[in-house]
């Protein structure tokens, strides 16, 4: 059984755009994957099928033996709690502090306050936001917001991390540092990580599997 599997997946948006075109893809547990493609290639759409923000037009998406493309809505919370997602548009709550944004996945999981607090401190160190702990998210720089978003994706130590253009607002050095942190996380916890990016520079820096998406088709995996 594969960890994550796309079977003959098509996604056509109501506007008629064919975002994914017969995608077949298998990813094993613990793999570190770059999903590479130009803007509009369908990377975000592919991620959204895993988080169930979208449903495939046809085909199946399987995660750990569960067909998530057929999952009933009431089970979505269970699916999403087990994912760590860096959304392309971040999805931070702007009027919450860094601390509040970071701790939110732990609140959903019902983690005890003391332990949650401890985990937040750990993550603050990992993403270098220790001195911004009580700042309002809205006031952070673009790069800091992205670090915060990564922190929130990792804080509950998910088995599968999806990072959609997590370095879009970062300079080269910070981008490397951040993806480095993700790489460390993956190796340490055996987590599966998928990073969507259009940066060629980034993918050459890590010993990772490369999946190339072009106009909704997988042309290399």
């Amino acid at each position: 059984m594969e960890f994550l599997e796309f079977k003959k997946v098509y996604k056509v948006y109501p506007t008629g755009v064919r975002a994914l075109d017969n995608v077949n893809l298998s990813i094993e547990k613990g793999e570190f994957v770059f999903l590479w493609g130009a803007t509009g290639a369908g990377k975000t759409t592919l991620m959204k099928l895993i988080t169930r923000e979208e449903l495939p037009t046809s085909g199946e998406v399987w995660l750990e033996g569960c067909e998530i493309s057929a999952l009933e809505d009431r089970y979505l919370p269970i699916l999403r709690r087990n994912l760590g997602v860096v959304f392309q548009d971040l999805k931070l709550v702007p009027h919450w502090t860094v601390y509040e944004n970071l701790i939110s996945p732990l609140q959903v999981l019902g983690v005890r306050k003391k332990y949650a607090h401890h985990l937040v401190e750990e993550i603050l160190d990992l993403v270098h936001l220790q001195d911004k702990k009580h700042h309002i998210a809205e006031w952070l720089s673009g790069g800091e917001k992205q670090k915060l978003c990564l922190g929130r994706a990792l804080i509950h130590r998910p088995h599968l991390v999806l990072a959609d253009e997590p370095t879009g607002n970062l300079d080269g050095a910070t981008a490397l540092e951040l993806v480095g942190a993700l790489f460390e996380f993956s190796k340490k916890l055996g987590a599966t990580v998928i990073i969507a990016t259009h940066s060629e520079e980034l993918i050459s820096q890590f010993p990772a599997r490369l999946v190339v998406l072009n106009k909704g088709k997988i042309i290399q995996s």
Binding site: T51, E53, L76, P77, I78, L79, R80, R81, N82, L83, V85, F87, K91, L92, V93, S104, P105, V108, L109, R152
Partner: peptide
């Protein structure tokens, strides 16, 4: 929206 996305 955020709560829902992180599985609440």
């Amino acid at each position: 929206e955020v709560w829902s996305l992180i599985g609440a």
